[in-house]
Design a protein around this nucleic acid. Structure first.
Lengths: 153, 153
DNA sequence: TTTCTATTTAGAATTATTCCAAGTATTGAC
DNA sequence: GTCAATACTTGGAATAATTCTAAATAGAAA
């Protein structure tokens, strides 16, 4: 996997972690690079498997710890769309997630008028840090899995 | 628990289930009434425990099955905000969920400008059935747990 | 350095969810 | 109504996801 010469200066991550009082470690950097190198929505387990390819000694507990750290310092988003495993998304541009209830795949989508953090008024009761928008439905024709399933049905 | 004389005519649920080709059963009705009778955000396990109080023979598998059926026919929403257990919400009015990252509690909130299904344009690739909006942050002062935690810190 | 504390590790433990096979209830056709 | 077909329920086992634990290691501050 091409996780070696990524444009992650390390300084960037280091600073983001430091801002939250978290330490920069090679494991966290590695997990981050794994996420950046393949921009889908892997589960912790999938991240673990990918991370092991170039860093075989990494442990599952560390993957969870690293993912938590990355989410906490705002360089990765945790995506929860269903009862299954949480997924992780390194696309920090403003976007929503579409989850197909038939095939289970998750896609990044841009919404024209999605609420933004500065715009959210929750009457002083809550301090909003992030907004997660998940769409549910079916991906019609977009993916071959759904096509197949409909062909069967 | 006052799950006996609720304004759930049964017909309503029956019809919604039938529309999706699902059968009306006493278990599904009971689970639905459990959710309606206490409008918080219980996990499947919590629903199970509440349901058992007045219907001790109900099983966990049936609770999951019933929750799935209720979600599928659109009378209950599944709420996924974190890695933990999914939660279930019988408030079908348009609203978002605020999840406090400190105490973990989930609150219903109304957003002024949240996207609605008819308004979502995803370029014909997706058929959107539902939009779930989850806010993350901290509930400042709203709940005693957070107050306590801050007092300690 | 030294010290303090956060992090990592492997594996055990726990929690959440699904699966299974046998029995039961609901539906639609007659 | 009765019957067949099939969906649903049940308890428990199985699996999957996540957290915990205690010892070793590594980063940060003095």
């Amino acid at each position: 996997m091409a996780t070696d010469h990524l444009p992650v200066s390390g300084d960037f991550l280091n600073q983001r972690l430091a801002e939250k009082g978290l330490r920069f470690t090679s494991q966290r950097q590695h997990v981050y690079e794994v996420l950046l190198s393949q921009r889908d929505h892997p589960s912790a387990d999938e991240v673990f498997m990918r991370a092991k390819q170039s860093k075989p000694e990494i442990s599952m507990a560390t993957v969870y710890n690293s993912l938590d750290a990355l989410v906490k310092c705002g360089v990765v988003r945790q995506v929860n769309v269903d009862r299954g495993a949480s997924m992780y998304c390194s696309n920090m541009n403003e976007h929503a997630h579409f989850c197909c209830d038939d095939c289970g795949k998750v896609f990044d989508v841009n919404l024209k008028d999605s609420p933004r953090v500065p715009e959210v008024d929750v009457s002083g009761k809550f301090e909003v840090r992030q907004i997660d928008i998940a769409l549910h439905g079916r991906c019609t024709g977009t993916c071959e899995d759904c096509g197949r399933r409909e062909a069967h049905a």
